[in-house]
């Protein structure tokens, strides 16, 4: 259960951005959660409910966008989506693939209320 510490990191970054842009409040936060990021989106959402209290992000909407696992096949060159535990090329069955996306945990976007600045 390290979603709470990740959430702490998330809020730290978001609040720093808010201060930097002199925002009145944080409106929305978008996080990309890859299928192989090792993070459970529901736990992250719960942790956010706890962490945001009393901060500039108290009213913020947290959007967790799932990022599917995609691999590029070094044999046939085709890029495909795969299940989390089967990263071989689904087209030619080659095991020689590189992950293109799916293990990221990224703070993608922050929406700030800066209307009066």
């Amino acid at each position: 259960m390290h979603e709470l510490s990740l959430c702490d990191d998330l809020l730290g970054q978001v609040l720093a951005l808010g201060r930097q842009h002199q925002a009145r409040s944080i409106v929305g936060i978008t996080v990309h959660v890859g299928g192989l990021s090792g993070v459970e989106p529901m736990l992250l959402a719960t942790a956010f409910e706890i962490c945001r209290v009393g901060t500039l992000a108290e009213q913020a909407r947290l959007v967790l966008e799932p990022i599917p696992v995609r691999v590029h096949c070094n044999h046939c060159g085709i890029e495909s989506e795969t299940p989390n535990n089967h990263l071989q090329c689904p087209v030619c069955q080659s095991p020689d693939t590189d992950m293109v996306s799916g293990d990221e945990l990224i703070l993608a976007r922050v929406e700030l209320d800066t209307a009066c600045v």
Binding site: Q13, L105, I106, L107, R109, V110, E111, L112, D113, T114
Partner: peptide, 14 residues
């Protein structure tokens, strides 16, 4: 009234 900041930053940066 809302500015969007694209961040794309890894969350376990600390």
């Amino acid at each position: 009234g809302v500015s969007t900041v694209t961040v794309l930053k890894n969350l376990s940066s600390k």
